[in-house]
Design a binder for these strands. Structure first.
Lengths: 254, 254
DNA sequence: CGGATTCTTGAGCATATTCAATTGTGGTGG
DNA sequence: CCACCACAATTGAATATGCTCAAGAATCCG
């Protein structure tokens, strides 16, 4: 990982856009290191994953698929606190009690679960696991900072643009037809709205506007084609931060 | 630490309200364990604390005082991502690059700083340090979840009530005159507004309303007297979650 | 193909923002 | 000690942005 305050980091905002590639090799190595300590959970959209194992704290590692981490305060609608993708880590204590926390798969995938004390032990013993964990926490904290800034300061269109950008960077692949990016839409409109602190109606309107302006294009129900990446990036104040964050791995390889 | 999903945790929402007490003993023990590895930084309100040491990542531990962690996306106003109090931990990687991150003391206090690799080493070697760190991350993640829910879903009054509640629980002490709680207001109106994703004008209006309804009372400039804790708690959907989160230490002692 | 769910879209409304004027506070120097 | 300044906080009136509610269209699923 490059150092944070490197005065001139080798980012190329105008050149190739760095899209997330599966880090399956690294996760596979991790799985080997975790050995028999981790329970594998196959996830299916909408089911509820229990945040604790038999009353004790647990650690989760996302292997495949996407999940939403939700919180609901009494009298208000649900808030999607984070969207978890492969490589992300969750400790059940990250969700406040008395807040109706829930972990809900947005698509089918796989999850590894360990009891926290066991995982803590592994963290102390295995430097590779520790490094993975600290990296993951680092990334997730940074992502949350961007998320907080988005829901706190952005207007509706900026929020939506930021969300689409995030999705494109994390799960998108360059489209076969050249200039665009295609990516899955694992979340429903309501879920996206709850993630962005928006009304579902307002969100729908905004996305329609993006579609009619030619930036976006729904091919199928749960799939999107981003026609103009640059135009979308120009709509999101967080574009540079997001590209920097998600392009990190790509940079290391270049 | 109590297990997260203990079916009937021994919380007493209606009985005594658990206010934060200084954990100076635990922090003192930590300081001893950190030994000569940590640099001590005295903070003064408004100064800017560099997030990196000579270009490499750093870890910070708050010993005294309060700090704001800020992020500013181009074209939008600053967002206060978190307010850090004694016992909180920050790794410079938690702040996304390209987001104009800054760490700014809200009051005078003290900060310990280590190079990240050194701290990571200590984490692996010293179980007490590891446990402290994981606890801190746990708490901060949970707090951020509440914060996200607040800026995403709450209306103006709920946001303000939640903020005041958080401050009262984290830094307040029962007032000498009996029923109230007094606490410092380390943040300016603008900073509070940026923390809550509100306009400073709107915030001021809302606080005036709370004051005229008798819940709140400014004694001096940077000090507040919370007259009616229960009334304020009733205004915040996050009240239960916050009390649960900040009352934990108190419970352990009881 | 029908029924349920999700998504879209419009019209009216409410809440928070903007902008500007005013008051209050703290610091500095005469 | 007071006058002065700069800055922070308060408040009002007008505006705008996103929300609510309700109806219709599209999509999914059995």
């Amino acid at each position: 990982m490059t150092s944070r305050a490197n005065p001139k980091s080798a980012r190329r905002p105008s050149a190739g856009i760095p899209f997330g590639e599966p880090k399956s090799d690294r996760l596979a190595a991790l799985q080997a290191a975790l050995g028999a300590h981790a329970a594998t959970i196959r996830t299916r959209r909408g089911q509820n994953v229990a945040l604790a194992v038999e009353g004790s704290e647990a650690a989760f590692i996302v292997h495949a698929g996407a999940l939403t981490l939700n919180v609901t305060m009494p009298g208000t609608s649900r808030q999607v606190v984070a969207i978890l993708f492969p490589g992300d880590v969750l400790r059940s204590g990250f969700v406040p009690r008395e807040a109706e926390g829930s972990l809900v798969p947005a698509s089918s995938g796989e999850l590894w679960r360990l009891r926290w004390p066991v995982f803590a032990e592994l963290l102390a013993k295995d430097p590779a696991i520790a490094s993975f964990y600290h990296e993951a926490i680092n990334r997730q904290m940074a992502r949350r900072a961007i998320h907080v800034a988005a829901i706190g300061q952005f207007d509706c269109q900026q929020k939506v643009a930021t969300f689409l950008l995030e999705l494109a960077l994390r799960t998108g692949t360059p489209s076969s037809s050249g200039s665009g990016v295609v990516f899955d839409m694992p979340l429903s409109r309501t879920e996206i709205a709850d993630y962005l602190g928006l009304n579902a109606d307002t969100l729908s309107r905004t996305m329609s506007r993006l579609r009619s302006s030619g930036v976006l294009n729904h091919t199928e129900r749960n799939r999107a084609l981003l026609r103009d990446f640059r135009a979308l990036a120009a709509l999101s104040p967080a574009a540079r931060a997001l590209i920097d964050l998600h392009g990190e791995r790509q940079l290391a390889a270049s």
